[in-house]
Simulated scan of single mutants.
Amino acid sequence: MSSATSGKSVPTYIDPTKPSIARVYDAFLNGKDNYEVDREVLRGVEKAAPEAKDLAVENRAFLNRACRFLAQQTDITQYLDCGSGLPTAENTHHVVQRIEADSRVVYVDNDPAVLAHGRALLEENESTFFVAEDIFEPEKLLKNDVVRSELDWEKPIALLQLGTLHHYTGESTRSRKDIMRAYTDTLPSGSYVAISHFLDPQDEYSETARKMEEMFLHSMMGSGTFSTRGELLELFNGLELVDPGLVRCPDWWPDGPQLKPLNAAQRCIAGAVGRKP
């Protein structure tokens, strides 16, 4: 049994023999809260694209830029962050509360390791909340007592689904589009939805995208679907996309000029922010 930190004991609520989506992302981001089984997934995807870690890096950068946009350019002061994952240096509440100190953030996840870290978030910030729910069961999640009481559903809310929907594996019973429709139908007018997702760019990089997908799907994690731009646009049905629309994550309001060409992984993750009329 190997952990990221030599000699680190394994909490009883964690199974180190099975990869976790949150811990795999942590491994992609060079974090310390992962195990050998999680790093095996990373190494497998790196066989398809050596730059695979940039999938997680660009996803995190998109989260930061989207949150800065929402906090600076809209009247949003409340956020529902679905599938929040393990904490990093810049979590949603860090970004938005730096701009709007009164912003409230409800994080949602059902990974045991994430839940444990979530308790620490509750202690450090009185405007940050954490609930244990399945983000792919929106009706149940939206009835959660904390979600209902700590967010004002008479005012606009920002819903974040960043790096989450490509891990949904229940397409045979309910589509990702149906899941997002359940969320957006409930959101008040003026709300925003931010989504990032693995992309099949349908160009010379499609083969790399599908190879990464195969590695994800055939790993012990068993999830990580790459979708076309058309398929991703369906997730924003009924929403008005904020300029520049659905683009590769590095192209969504970058922090500066792109001097280096994008690598294969950077071309295989897309994101957008939409507003509910």
Rank of each mutant, 00 (worst) to 15 (best):
T5W: 02
S9A: 13
K18C: 06
P19F: 01
P19D: 12
P19Q: 05
S20D: 12
N34R: 07
E36S: 10
V37C: 02
V41Y: 00
E46K: 14
A48E: 01
A48M: 01
L55C: 05
A56M: 06
V57N: 05
N59P: 13
N64W: 06
F69D: 00
F69Q: 00
L70H: 02
A71G: 06
Q73Y: 06
T74H: 04
Y79R: 01
D81Y: 04
L86S: 08
T88M: 05
R104V: 13
R104A: 07
V106K: 06
V108G: 02
D109C: 10
D111A: 09
V114Y: 10
V114T: 15
V114L: 11
A116P: 03
H117D: 10
G118E: 03
R119K: 15
T128L: 01
V131H: 06
V131A: 04
A132T: 12
E133R: 15
E137R: 14
L142I: 02
K143M: 13
V147Q: 04
R148S: 09
L151K: 02
E154F: 00
I157F: 00
L162M: 13
T169G: 08
G170H: 07
G170T: 05
E171V: 08
T173G: 08
R174Q: 14
R174F: 09
S175N: 07
A182D: 15
D185Y: 00
G190I: 03
A194I: 01
L199Q: 03
D200H: 03
Q202N: 13
S206V: 00
E207M: 12
M212Y: 11
E213D: 00
S219M: 07
M220V: 10
G224A: 05
N237P: 09
L241E: 09
L241M: 10
V247A: 09
P250C: 10
Q258G: 08
N263K: 07
A264V: 05
A264K: 09
A264S: 08
Q266A: 07
G274Y: 12
P277G: 12
